[in-house]
Design a protein around this nucleic acid. Structure first.
Length: 426
RNA sequence: GGGUGGGUGGCAGAGUGGUUGAAUGCUCUGGUCUUGAAAACCAGCGAGCGCGCAAGCGUUCCGGGGGUUCGAAUCCCUCCCCACCCGCCA
């Protein structure tokens, strides 16, 4: 959603963002819809004013017992009613048309988002460690997992189809350990409040964070009209929907470990082997609700929170700034963290940290009262801190040994009940 | 699934057809007092939209939509949501 007043005064900036998004200028259509609506409202207001004044006089006349006067006034306003109703109906329709159009538009882009077509044009901004070197040919995670007998894609396919996995024993433990470890990093060291929130939400919540109405095919809808969250960004961000917070409450930092569900309908044939792209995966999510003036610095800070996970586990990664063509719909600026995956001999996305401005706040009607007492929309940020399944791939592949066992980095061992190597006893 | 009761301002909570945008309390903001703080006291305090340089004026909003009426927070219909009780299940 956008502030129409701001838009009127900043048409070029608005259109520039939409052009960079590749959908062309949108302000003209938006203003056209808004102008029509405003014209209706203006004339409706006049009619209502007339009606209200007459009604008041009728009331007074009746109170005085002046029946003649009352009758006269009644005759005068006889046809007003229909006109008012007509005006109300047009206003409703025009407001709805404007809303529908606006809900389908993407967020503005931050001015420093690099231009580009697709992921190949993303800009690398930093690296941590060199890609891991091996004195043997490193395997992919599913080769390792299957050889260990702890990762079973056939069993999951039998009960659920493709893009699911069954983990057993020490690998199931590894998944749990990673989630637990990361959630602790964010809550103990970075001040996030741990949250356990619903995985099933109303469509309004999905509209709030921007998954709906445009991307319904990416998520799963239940038979009673609810939606399985594709990320707990949805639950965590909607925690503040329809609320007026105080500036004293901000910033709010929420983190949760949750399952996420994605239909992956648009990615047929992509990453079909292994756990990289699943219908169900778990992820530690971070959401920060803050004031507009703090948003930019918070974005960088949050990137650091996500990177911290890889630094502690000593997994090589690089950070990229997403280009205009690769950016998600609802965000203004995004950094991805890509971990080194020796099995694929490349970096793959494991975390995504984004700044949303007030775009989601407007959709959710999430506001706060400033120190001066004014009511303004909050700003939202979110980032993965990080995706468990993908981190597990990176960990397995980077820490694999020649015999197919997998070493556990020291900080994780206590979460693994002291285990130092997975599959060592084979 | 069956039944009952509800949805009012940041919060709590009055208000059942007429100058009510809405009593009252709390919170919050400013002030008085105080060495400072607390308490007490005084004052202020909803949001959106339109017009206006501004002061301000107008209008809408008491869950959503529709209806009755000259006039609706108040009456009727409908949908959504919430709470509680019963049944069922973990």
């Amino acid at each position: 959603m956008f502030d129409m007043k701001w838009l009127r005064a900043n048409k070029e900036e608005f259109d520039n963002s939409m052009i960079r998004r590749g959908i062309g200028p949108q302000s003209e259509k938006l203003l056209e819809l808004d102008d029509a609506r405003r014209a209706t409202v203006a004339s409706l207001n006049e009619l209502q004013e007339l009606r209200n004044k007459s009604s008041k006089q009728i009331g007074q006349a009746k109170a005085r017992g002046d029946k003649e006067k009352a009758q006269k006034l009644l005759a005068e306003v006889a046809d007003l009613k229909a006109k008012v109703q007509e005006g109300e109906e047009s206003e409703r329709q025009q407001t709805q048309a404007l809303n529908e159009f606006m809900l389908a538009l993407p967020n503005l882009l931050a001015s420093d988002v690099p231009e580009g077509e697709d992921e190949n044009d993303n800009i690398e901004i930093s690296r941590f460690m060199e890609p891991t070197k091996f004195d043997f040919v490193p395997k992919e995670h599913f080769e390792l997992g299957e050889a260990l007998g702890l990762m079973d894609f056939e069993a999951s396919a039998r009960m659920s189809g493709s893009r699911f996995v069954v983990l057993k024993g020490q690998l199931a433990l590894l998944e749990r350990a990673l989630g637990n470890f990361m959630l602790n990093v964010q809550t103990i060291h970075h001040g996030f409040t741990e949250v356990s929130a619903p995985l099933l939400v109303r469509p309004e919540a999905m509209i709030g964070t921007g998954q709906l109405p445009k991307f319904s095919e990416d998520s799963f809808e239940t038979s009673d009209g609810r939606w399985l969250i594709p990320t707990s960004e949805v639950s965590l961000t909607n925690l503040v929907r329809e609320q007026t917070l105080s500036y004293k409450d901000l910033p709010l930092r929420y983190s949760s470990l949750s399952y996420c569900f994605r239909s992956e309908s648009g990615s047929a044939g992509k990453d079909t082997r292994g756990m990289l792209r699943q219908h169900q995966f778990s992820k530690v999510e971070m959401v920060i609700i803050t004031t507009p003036d703090k948003a930019d610095e918070t974005h960088k800070e949050m990137l650091g929170f996500a990177q911290e996970v890889f630094r502690r586990l000593k997994i090589p990664y690089r950070t990229v700034a997403l280009c205009t063509g690769d950016m998600g719909n609802s965000m203004q600026r995004t950094f991805d963290i890509e971990a080194w995956m020796p099995g694929q001999n490349t970096y793959r996305e494991v975390s995504s940290v984004s700044m949303g401005g007030d775009w989601q706040a407007r959709r959710m009607n999430a506001r706060y009262r400033t120190e001066e007492g004014k009511v303004e929309f909050v700003h939202t940020l979110n980032g993965s801190g990080v995706a468990v399944g993908r981190l597990m791939i990176a960990l397995m592949e980077n820490y694999q040994n020649k015999d197919g066992s997998i070493s556990i980095p020291e900080p994780l061992q206590r979460y693994m009940n002291g285990l130092e190597v997975i599959g060592a006893d084979k």
